[in-house]
């Protein structure tokens, strides 16, 4: 199969040179910039560590990413199970529901959520029309809005790894557990869930990692005073022109992202989703 004759390995060169000059170099330069300050190499990192507002933003970013991950696991697991066990027709319907948002422009989806969640939006109008609430719920421009929007964006990244593991699982293992006397609940918690855990872990690492650096959803659906790490980076570039601090924050995010990705790849086979191995 991997039986290509002749030369031609040089064909990778144009793309490699392009990436080296216009991707690796700019990112490397950004990292270098975080250490290039007359006052000392570590001043910006020291500031991140010492200013409570920055630590609060880092902390909030971690918490929101973790919450998004948990919400995605809870929502994705049953859907992935149905995706794997459904009839071809049912599978097609679910796949369309998963892939439509996947292929829809991020801004279109954010805008859709604003239409759904704003005080005069679909959900509030419906709830007030039904007489369930007297005044609109605050569903957007706060943490609630960020969690609702982020979880929806991230769901496909959770569903697909879990479904991949479920599809590989031999259904006979749960039959065996049942025939040996396990209740359905026991069979699920003792056999099925542990065996599908690698998919959950791969999806979780992926969702958590992407969430850490997410910019669009927090900027559009979040509150202006509850910003996350990516917005803090943007703020330092465009508003206060503090490139050194923005570079240091970017470096922290970069190390966290690459570290988590490496862990996910090493232990949960995350790299397989790209199919390049």
């Amino acid at each position: 199969m991997r039986n290509l004759t002749g030369g031609g390995a040089w064909l990778v060169l144009p793309a490699v040179l392009l990436l080296a000059a216009f991707f690796l170099w700019p990112v490397g330069e950004l990292v270098a910039r975080s250490f290039r300050d007359p006052a000392g190499a570590w001043v910006h990192y020291q500031r991140i560590w010492e200013v409570p507002a920055y630590l609060r933003i880092l902390n909030r970013t971690l918490v929101i990413s973790a919450m998004t991950t948990v919400i995605c696991v809870v929502l994705a697991y049953p859907l992935a199970y149905r995706l794997v066990t459904a009839s071809p027709m049912g599978r097609a319907v679910i796949l369309v529901c998963v892939l439509i948002p996947f292929w829809t422009n991020l801004l279109v989806r954010s805008y859709g959520w604003i239409i759904m969640l704003n005080p005069q939006g679909v959900i509030n109008s419906a709830l007030m029309g039904l007489g369930l609430i007297d005044e609109p719920l605050r569903l957007v421009y706060n943490t609630t809005g960020v969690l609702i929007g982020m979880s929806q964006i991230m769901l496909p990244f959770m569903i697909l790894p879990i479904a991949a593991v479920m599809a590989r699982l031999d259904p006979k293992v749960t039959h065996a557990a049942r025939s040996l006397g396990a209740t359905p609940v026991q069979a699920f918690f003792k056999v099925y869930l542990p065996l599908t855990m690698p998919g959950v872990m791969a999806g979780s690492v992926l969702v958590f990692t992407i969430s850490l650096g997410f910019f669009v959803i927090p900027a559009l659906l979040g509150g202006s005073r509850e910003i996350l790490l990516a917005q803090l980076i943007e703020f330092n570039i465009n508003q206060v022109l503090n490139w050194g601090l923005a570079a240091a924050l970017s470096t922290v995010l970069l190390i966290a992202t690459l570290g988590l990705y490496w862990i996910g790849d090493r232990w949960f086979g995350l790299g397989r989703i790209w199919g390049l191995k």
């Binding site: 700019p26 950004l30 850490l212 650096g213 990516a230 980076i233 943007e234 570039i237 923005a246």
Partner: peptide, 8 residues
């Protein structure tokens, strides 16, 4: 993350 690529 795209925010890093964007700034770089």
């Amino acid at each position: 993350p795209t925010i890093i690529t964007a700034v770089a």
